[in-house]
Design a protein around this nucleic acid. Structure first.
Length: 414
RNA sequence: GCGGGAGUAGCUCAGUUGGCAGAGCACCGGGUUGUGGUCCCGGGUGUCGCGGGUUCGAAUCCCGUCUCUCGCCCCA
């Protein structure tokens, strides 16, 4: 048997971890529901081409980060590295374009073959929303404000910054790309090795380089804003106006360029200073060409995804575990009565943990250790008189309660 | 994929020049077979990440490897 360890970059979620993860997810889901979003759960694996085609053949995600394998039927399958492609595939598969717009929420594990770091795992969790079928800039405003409310609900309002940019229409973006490449070709000798690579695959990313030499070159590069056509400029202005109407603070970052090919117009990120190199906590943008590219009816889209583990590290949300009632039977003869009592109390909404053991002292010690609110003790004396001893574990006081009144009595002390 | 740092008990960590593996907390047993916490007594619970090598002797030195971690790439 292999050593009892997890695969690199994966983790077990123990009860407290799971509770914290559910708390973050639940907050997102509640927020999305209030905006009228419905949850869509797609499989965690898809045909490889679902991702390969949509993410772009040159993206890092496709070229080196996907978990791809052949199943027994010979199909190439891939564990989802992100979920926009899967949601769009589901949108097409289920003909959701019949009723637009579609407001979709999702959550679940994603998989990327990357070198792990803090806030970067090979299996991690994302939550996200996609708003399909709305070309209006107010759709971008909606998803950004949804994100903002969600992050504020987690108590992160002060810890995060919203950065915003536009790539312009697909035409604007393509025109700018040409101008940028022309400029950079003239300064090849001053670019870093990484950026020479980017020049071939994804030249816009050079704008975001951390290399000092690159930045000097970039300083003289043509600005994306200057390449925007009229409608693209108006679109961006409308997004910003909407954010201002909602008083959502943001700042324009002309170097904010998404890595994936399908983005156009609005791009945004909520970032933090508190997570080292993994400062992006939630990111998204508009992807008007994606649905058509995947073979569906031309449909505009906008949305975002957030990393749950990163949010958990930031927010310090504590797991809320209900304090149980400890059900203690004294002696085997009383176990039947105790089992039935425990069932009754659970049916009345109580959390009840049943004690295994014989010595009252040990069972009380156990009740104390699990943080029980109350201990219900059922011994032969109690059974004979149709009562139970109810001990308040915090106060250290106890009383006998008639079995008929037990639910009522416990409900009072909740 | 590239470059640094780390790995000793469940947790946080100490361990001298290579010489019997330790502390605090936690945990377990007993004092207490119908009463927990506090208290007292007792217990170390360990593949020193793993595998080799050097040595009379390795947690300690050397090599490899795994995992975590910081940065790069990229990304949530």
């Amino acid at each position: 048997m292999a050593a009892a360890r997890t695969v690199r970059g994966t983790r077990d979620l123990l009860p407290e971890d799971s509770a914290r993860l559910r708390a973050v997810e639940g907050t997102a889901w509640q927020t999305a529901q209030r905006f009228g979003y419905g949850e869509v759960a797609t499989p965690i694996f898809e045909f490889t081409e679902v991702f390969a085609r949509t993410l772009g053949d040159t993206s890092d995600v496709v070229t080196k980060e996907m978990y791809t394998f052949n199943d027994r039927g010979g199909d190439s399958l891939t564990l989802r590295p992100e979920n926009t492609a899967g949601i769009v595939r589901a949108f097409i598969s289920n003909s959701l374009a019949a009723q637009l717009p579609q407001r979709i929420f999702y959550r679940g594990p994603m998989f990327r073959y990357e070198r792990p770091q803090k806030g970067r795992l090979r299996q991690f969790h994302q939550i996200g929303v996609e708003l399909l079928g709305a070309a209006d800039p107010l759709a971008d405003v909606e998803v950004i404000s949804l994100a903002h409310e969600f992050l504020c609900a987690l108590g992160l309002g002060g810890a995060i910054t919203l950065e915003l940019n536009t790539l312009g229409s697909s035409e604007s973006r393509a025109a700018y790309r040409t101008r940028l490449v022309d400029y950079l070709q003239g300064h090849r000798e001053r670019l870093s090795v990484d950026s020479l690579e980017r020049l071939e695959r994804n030249p816009l990313r050079i704008l975001d380089s951390k290399d000092a030499g690159d930045r000097a070159v970039i300083a003289g590069a043509p600005a994306l804003a200057d390449s925007l056509d009229g409608p693209s400029g108006e679109f961006f202005a409308a997004v910003r106006a909407g954010l201002n109407d909602l008083e959502i603070p943001h700042h324009i970052n002309p170097r904010l360029v998404r890595g994936l090919d399908y983005y156009c117009h609005t791009t945004f990120e909520f970032t933090t200073e508190h997570l080292g190199a993994q400062g992006t906590v939630l990111a998204g943008g508009r992807y008007d060409g994606l649905v058509a590219q995947m073979g569906g009816p031309p449909t505009p889209g906008t949305g975002w995804a957030a990393g749950v583990e990163r949010l958990m590290m930031l927010s310090g949300v504590q797991a809320v575990m209900p304090r149980p009632v400890a059900m203690i039977a004294l002696g085997r003869e009383q176990s039947g009565a105790a089992l039935r009592l425990a069932r009754r109390l659970r049916q009345s909404g109580q959390t009840v943990q049943f004690a295994f053991g014989t010595s009252l002292g040990k069972q009380m010690k156990w009740a104390n250790r699990i943080g029980a609110r109350l201990a219900v003790i059922v011994g032969s004396d109690e059974v004979a008189r149709q009562v139970a001893t109810v001990r308040d574990m915090d106060a250290g006081a106890q009383e006998e309660v008639s079995l008929d009144l037990l639910e009522e009595r416990l409900a009072q002390s909740a």
